[in-house]
Structures are given as structure tokens and as C-alpha cells.
Amino acid sequence: MLKINNLHVSVDDGQKPILTGLSLDVPKGEVHAIMGPNGAGKSTLSYVLTGRDGYEVIDGTVTLDGEDLLDMEPEERAAAGVFLSFQYPLEIPGVPTMTFLKTALNAQRKARGEEEMKAPEFLKKSRALAAELKMKPEMLKRPLNVGFSGGEKKRMEIFQMMMLEPNFIVMDETDSGLDVDALRIVADGVNKLRSPDRGMLIITHYQRLLDYIVPDRVHVLAKGGIAASGDADFAKRLEKEGYDAYAA
């Protein structure tokens, strides 16, 4: 599904190399975890996949179901089904959450040539989901993420993810800022989205999240590429032994 081949990425106008030949293959239906020390380029990977400015691809390819992702604008990637759950979700003052999400959902549908979702259907779906994620209904009326706690913001990311039903999900440090109860709710939501048609890449510094969302494969990102890979138990070993063996 997602194929990354020999990816080289630099920041600071190409002056500072971050990824130096990263290759990774996430087949349909699988959940892969990316772990690694701070500063290894985990967040860089999430931003390159979603097309943020300031990350210069020097070499390599990234395709989703055979389509060249790197050639697309961020909104085109979103319409192709790429969703990033942000490590630090942005506050958007003045834009009510529901307006934001409905605009996003229908922009994606329009880009894919699908019919827009009508207001009653949207409302019904969002209310049911909010209840499932144990979110207060008034959160949906407030401007997006404004005045939300760290945990509420992360929950809002999962809420958006479940509303948008993307094909490929990238989660960047989703567990940070969550207490155990919130972590369970978030993980339940993510697990519900696991399907044979969907791929996921879970970026995390700690193994904790992977107790709840058990990955098919675990990779260590260090020194600009994948330094080691293993199964779910590998994550537990990493937690115990640390990343020293892979660090520069």
C-alpha cells in the first residue's frame, strides 16, 4: 500500500539531512510502528508523507497504491486518503469544529468526485461518534481545539480520523498527553478502523501505546533510516533495552 523507497529528506533549505535512504513498505491491512530516539526524524517522516513545506525531498520515491504522493499538494494527499494525527494539533480560532470538519469532509469528497454529505447525515454521524469517544457535545460547537486540553486535542484528532475514514493513517506521538483512560478510548477508536483495506503507521517514542494498538511490524528509525525491524514483541525489547544500540 505505502511504499517508501530510498527516501532522502533535508531541512533548512536542503542544508541539514534528516532522512538518508529510508525504505519502508506497509502492506494493506497492516499496522506498522515506527519507534526511535528523539531527533531521529520520526516527525519529519510524518510531514514528508503529508506534504508540509520546508521538507525538501532530495531523492527517493513515496507511493500510495502506486500513486506518487510526493507530486501531490497536501489537500490532494488528504483526498487520496492520507490522514495525519498531529503530535501538536493546531488551534483554529473562529472556525467552529463542525464547520471545519464538514468543510474538510466535503472538500475531500468533491475532490474524489463523490457526492457531498448532507447536513443531517453529518450531524447524526458526528453526534454518534462524539458519544462513542466520550467527548462533550459542546466541544463540537467550540472553535477547533481552542481552549482544549492536550488530551482533548488528541481525542479530537481521533474524532476527525473516524469521521473522515481515511485509507492510510499516520499517527504522530498520539499517546503523548493522554492519561490511561483516554489512551484506551483512543486505542479503541483506532482499532475499530483496522481493516483489510487500510494501512497505519504509528509513530511513537514509547511502547505504551502499542499495548493497546498491537502492531504487525515494529521498526526502529535511527541514523536517517530503518535500523532494525521486528514483530510486536520487538517493541517490548526496545522499551527495556533503549535505543542506544541504534544511535549514532
Binding site: 497536501p74 489537500e75 494527499r77 488528504a78 495525519l84 498531529f86 494539533p89 474538510a104 469532509l105
Partner: peptide, 13 residues
């Protein structure tokens, strides 16, 4: 950053 966030959700620039 806010613009990128919105575009990542599919809203054209």
C-alpha cells in the same frame, strides 16, 4: 501551520 493543518484535512489552500 494552521493552513497546513487545514490542507492536511483536505481543505484546498
Amino acid at each position: 501551520s494552521a493552513l497546513f493543518y487545514m490542507r492536511q484535512r483536505g481543505i484546498p489552500l
